[in-house]
Amino acid sequence: MDDAPTDPEPSEELAHDDPERQESDREIERDEAGLTRHERGQIKDNLRLSARTVFSVIRREGEEELHRPAMSLWWSGMAAGIGISTSVFAQGLLHNAFETHPHRELIAAFGYAMGFVLVVLSRLQLFTENTLTAVLPLLAGPNGERLWRTARLWAVVLAANLFGTFLTALLIDVLVDPAHPTLAGMLAVSRKAAEASGTAALLDGIPAGFFIAAFVWMLPSSKGFEIFVVALFTWLIAAGGFTHVVAGSTEMFLLAFHGEMAMGEVFGTHLLPTLVGNVVGGTGLFALLAYAQIKGEI
């Protein structure tokens, strides 16, 4: 019968090198020996994932990404660049719809989350996600092969993302009526984003990179609630006026095609500084901190 007491299943924690930890685990096993299989299942279902478990999940995903063919990364990255442009469309739509609302900017920021929800839940390749996912395997086992594969992944995905946003902005410029109210809203939020340039864009890119890496770290623990985690933190990026190199490239390309910015300015004073900030926030801060907290346990 399912409710009859059974021998406790071996604990994965018993493999830990700390003798005190092993003894504690054995004590827990003894205390739970009288529980039914159903009760022990309820305990498992309600346990939060440990930091080591989250690390292992993301590291395994990173290893898989590092070994994907370059063409697979390219097409996935280009699709992500097109998909992330939904953020600018939805933000412009809300910006125009709530023209007279006192909290117009905060409401429009919810639209910014839409592209990230589309890309992340579709499992498309977004560069700023890879500042954490692809780096954890390198931190756990640094070698020349992993370094090369990480550099290849970053280069292919970033180029594909930017090509996708460039193509989307070009199509919008060619196909959409300049008098369309949603386009006016998209241009308005793009002009607002363009106010951050140079050092300001770099500094604003650090929190954005950190938040992206943070929600990637939280996703394994957020089964069933992924959409809310992604939407919350990407809304925070837009509401805080922080800069994201891929979503922001759609905005900058739109301004360039509209004749309000030169391409040299797009890359030199906006995208490049934002890229540096995103990498510092995602890899230099979050990835290193996430790895440091479990380094002694793996």
Rank of each mutant, 00 (worst) to 15 (best):
S122K: 04
I107S: 00
G111P: 05
L121H: 02
G115M: 07
F110H: 02
A97W: 11
V117D: 05
V120M: 07
E105M: 04
V88E: 14
V135P: 00
Q91A: 15
H101G: 01
R104T: 04
A113E: 15
V135D: 01
A80C: 09
H101N: 10
L94D: 14
A109H: 03
F98R: 02
N130F: 08
A90V: 14
L121G: 01
Q125D: 06
M114L: 15
M114T: 15
R123N: 05
P102V: 10
T86Y: 15
A113G: 10
V117K: 04
N96C: 00
Y112K: 05
T100Q: 13
F116P: 15
L118C: 07
L93H: 15
L106Q: 12
L106G: 15
I84W: 05
L93D: 06
N130A: 04
V135L: 01
F110L: 08
S87A: 13
G111C: 09
G92E: 13
A97D: 09
N130K: 05
G83M: 13
L124D: 02
G111A: 08
E105W: 03
F110W: 11
L94N: 15
H103W: 11
N96Q: 11
T128Y: 01
A97I: 05
H101E: 02
L132V: 13
Q125Y: 03
L121K: 03
S87F: 10
V120E: 07
T133H: 01
M114H: 08
G83E: 13
L93G: 15
A134M: 04
